[in-house]
Design a protein around this nucleic acid. Sequence first.
DNA 1: CGCCAGTAGTTCAAATTTGAAGGAAGTGGT
DNA 2: ACCACTTCCTTCAAATTTGAACTACTGGCG
Lengths: 154, 154
Amino acid sequence: MTVPEAGPGPETAARPWDVWQLFFETTARLTTEIEARLKEHGCSLMDYQVLLLLWNAEDHRLRMGELAQRMVFSPSRLSYQIGVLEKRGWVRRRRCPQDARGLEAELTDEGLRAFRRLRPAHARDVEELFLRALEGDDADRLAAVMDRLARTLA
Amino acid sequence: MTVPEAGPGPETAARPWDVWQLFFETTARLTTEIEARLKEHGCSLMDYQVLLLLWNAEDHRLRMGELAQRMVFSPSRLSYQIGVLEKRGWVRRRRCPQDARGLEAELTDEGLRAFRRLRPAHARDVEELFLRALEGDDADRLAAVMDRLARTLA
DNA sequence: CGCCAGTAGTTCAAATTTGAAGGAAGTGGT
DNA sequence: ACCACTTCCTTCAAATTTGAACTACTGGCG
């Protein structure tokens, strides 16, 4: 309203700080709900994300450090998480051939089956709770913003 | 590239699932970094958000339940958080006059001062790490998407 | 009034997360 | 070969988070 516009401009001139608060709160609600639904199938969202990264990786394995980077986990947090998944039989630790300091986390056959079992329900949840809210070129616009954010953070 | 377009369409047709992953990962990086910076001033992001909500509230007070809703916290989590802030002298618990079951969390004078001390640095961080990435009408578009997400979750 | 289902918060134990410290192995200079 | 430095990951204690009881109070109904 304060800035003259040519043509039909946006109805709402969102105040930047409100956008941040809305982003923060909505993100919390979204991940909380998705996590709650996934947990009914016996898996936390972080568990799932680890499985997903391993699933996508060459030979279903990744170096611990690489995994920690991608998950935005501290080393100790990743160590704990992998420990949990290992006890559950979904992941195995292997010493890395190239570098005896390092370890690789590898999806077991059981982990593979668990992932395949979990995926459909989780995909539907993300679909329903997140993707459905994206209209028109929202996906592209959102991706562009996230890319810019990621670049700032790098 | 796979879909014929009339005129100069968007360069990138982001695949929905990738958008979700990017959103999830970038959000994690962003909040992790903002939290790290805030902690150098001796306050967690959740502490700050509680202070902010109380700051904005009538008489700087809110019912525990209301606060829990807005923070997306479980009752026990809020109870713990308020306990921490209370020990630090930033917040006080008062029995609610209208309903003897309930409590209100109220900002103390010291809490007020703490918030005013924290705010500038945090504002700069959010500015630098989040708001700067928003170009053109990104803020409005993002707000619209978040609104739609929130409505789905309600 | 007296009972009772429902509401508001707290508490407790178990699970997770953090951050500092440690142990094992690579790397590079001498 | 040796030593200092770095990298990779784990471990440990303390802080936080979760989820299931548990306590205190309300409001409505007989």
